[in-house]
């Protein structure tokens, strides 16, 4: 990355400068899982497989799809996921 901007840290610098990733959930049994197809080739195959595995375990799954793998998901899709699901599994590769 070509870094051309910087700000000074206003915090006590007790944590890393990188943004912390969200922790993995401790359990998924009572959660709804969003399976997000990024619209890349064979994403759906991967997600079909994942869906069957979750469904076997009785875990609720909802499917979503981006319009294109080269662009961010549209706002309505993002908001639907936020509203309807607790965890997202995204298929990244063909």
């Amino acid at each position: 990355m070509h870094k051309t901007q910087f700000l000074r840290d206003p915090t006590s610098e007790a944590s890393t400068t990188l943004r912390k990733p969200t922790c993995f959930p401790e359990n998924i049994e009572k959660r709804t899982i969003a399976l997000l197809d990024i619209a890349k080739e064979r994403s759906d195959e991967f997600l079909d497989h994942i869906e069957s595995k979750f469904t076997e375990k009785g875990i609720k799954v909802r499917r979503y799809r981006k319009a294109s793998n080269s662009k961010n998901a549209d706002l309505l899709t993002i908001q639907s996921i936020v509203r309807e699901a607790d965890i997202v599994v995204e298929s990244l590769a063909d």
């Binding site: 990355m1 870094k3 910087f6 400068t17 943004r19």
Partner: peptide
């Protein structure tokens, strides 16, 4: 105070939000 660096394409205001400032 340490520098927080990011890409020229990033919006500094959004960077501040993302970092919880």
């Amino acid at each position: 105070s340490r520098k927080i660096e990011f890409s020229e394409w990033d919006d500094p205001v959004e960077q501040a939000y993302d970092r919880g400032w």
